[in-house]
């Protein structure tokens, strides 16, 4: 069981309190009703699923209830950092990948 740092509770909490919520930094288009099929496909269906550092959403569902973002290495299964919703995607070069 991992420990995950919740950026709202400001401490590490057991994984059992969290739920994964898919890839991060995919904004719903403002004019979603108008976009073309290809744009909708990119928005709704296509995910990066990289080997290595991935940016993903989590929710502290059995804690503060907040959604937040995380950078996690899918190879080592390490959380590199977590940050609040609305904060910019962190610069990969500045993340300590250990």
């Amino acid at each position: 069981m991992l420990l995950i740092h919740c950026p709202y509770c400001e401490e590490e909490r057991p994984e059992l309190e969290f739920r994964h919520a898919g890839e991060a930094h995919i904004a719903r288009p403002e004019n979603i009703a108008e976009i073309a099929d290809e744009a909708f496909q990119r928005y709704f269906f296509i995910r990066a699923n990289p080997k290595g550092v991935t940016f993903e959403r989590w929710r502290h569902i059995h804690g503060c209830g907040r959604f937040f973002n995380a950078a996690r290495d899918t190879v080592s299964d390490r959380f590199l950092m977590t940050y609040r919703v609305g904060e910019p995607k962190p610069d990969l070069r500045k993340i300590d990948r250990k």
Partner: peptide, 10 residues
Amino acid sequence: ASRTVFGKAE
């Protein structure tokens, strides 16, 4: 005080 889990219940 904290919301958390106890077994399979919140």
